[in-house]
């Protein structure tokens, strides 16, 4: 069963588009799209089944992109400065908007972004039951194995992760989700927009390095869930959580398990692809 979050992602996206662009895109166009792309000086594109499909012959102007950004942040740039520094904005309904533009950095740290030239609206999906087959390989004897979902972007890692959270929570495990970009749970006014189960706590917009320690010390989770593991600092935080007796469930960008270090703290590696559509499980490897 596939369904949208409490806030319809297509409606949220349409709310943010300037009137001139809204005429070229309908809610129907977005329902089965994976992404909507706006690039200054180029045509507006929807990505469906991995293919880019132009929605109009008219090109998007830089001014329209700037207006869209202002609408996304509800004319309150100051409220989303940290998100902009990380290169994305978040809409209700779990939509993540990736930003392209001029990056202002100092000493390898992003200070701000300006002159936005491109936006990538990623439309989330909720596929109830898509993780059912995988669950038996992750949970054995009341114990959740440290699991890493691995795939290139757009292969359904987050959708699978979301359903694993729902299933584990449904089985009574205390799950804590570090939802850095509001994509996994799509919380709005404290209520999760997606079904993530009754035993799930969510730390929103919280960096993993901070959130893991916070979760371990205050929420006593049995499973810690995070999306898109990146860099040594986050890995160190994950090892800390594993050392504290929490099971880890996370995703990472990558095409092959063999390219990963042997020292990662995971017992199960699930590689995803797009062979039969997003979310196709290519390999499940359990480390002895």
């Amino acid at each position: 069963m596939m369904k949208a979050s409490a806030f319809s992602a297509p409606q949220e996206i349409l709310r943010c588009l300037p009137e001139a662009l809204k005429t070229f895109v309908s809610e129907r166009d977005l329902i089965y799209a994976e992404e909507l792309r706006l690039r200054a000086g180029k045509r507006m594109m929807a990505v469906r089944g991995g293919q880019s499909v132009p929605l109009s012959e008219t090109v998007v102007s830089a001014g329209q992109i700037a207006e869209t950004v202002m609408r996304i942040c509800n004319h309150s740039v100051y409220a989303v400065t940290e998100q902009i520094k990380n290169g994305f904005l978040v809409l209700r309904g779990g939509v993540r908007v990736g930003l392209a533009g001029c990056v202002l950095s100092r000493e390898d740290a992003v200070e701000n972004m300006k002159e936005f030239s491109g936006l990538n609206f990623r439309i989330p999906r909720e596929k109830i039951g898509c993780a059912d087959k995988l669950l038996s390989q992750i949970v054995t004897g009341g114990y959740v194995k440290n699991t890493l979902l691995l795939s290139p972007p757009g292969c359904g890692k987050t959708t699978l992760l979301r359903d694993l959270v729902r299933s584990l929570s449904g089985r009574g495990f205390r799950v804590c989700v570090l939802d850095e970009r509001d994509e996994i749970c799509a919380v709005h006014h404290g209520i999760a927009g997606f079904d993530v189960g009754e035993n799930t706590d969510v730390l929103r917009l919280c960096p993993k390095t901070v959130g893991i320690e916070l979760a371990v010390r205050t929420l006593s989770p049995q499973v810690i869930v995070a999306d898109e593991l990146w860099g040594e600092a986050e890995l160190r935080a994950m090892r800390y959580a594993a050392g504290c007796g929490c099971a880890l469930l996370t995703t990472m960008h990558g095409a092959k398990r063999s390219a990963l270090s042997e020292e990662l703290p995971f017992e199960v590696y699930v590689t995803l692809g797009r062979k039969n559509g997003p979310g196709t499980v290519q390999e499940v490897y359990t480390r002895a």
């Binding site: 202002m70 942040c73 509800n74 004319h75 309150s76 740039v77 100051y78 400065t81």
Partner: peptide
Amino acid sequence: LGSSDAES
């Protein structure tokens, strides 16, 4: 109003 960071 609302068009820049908090400091500004």
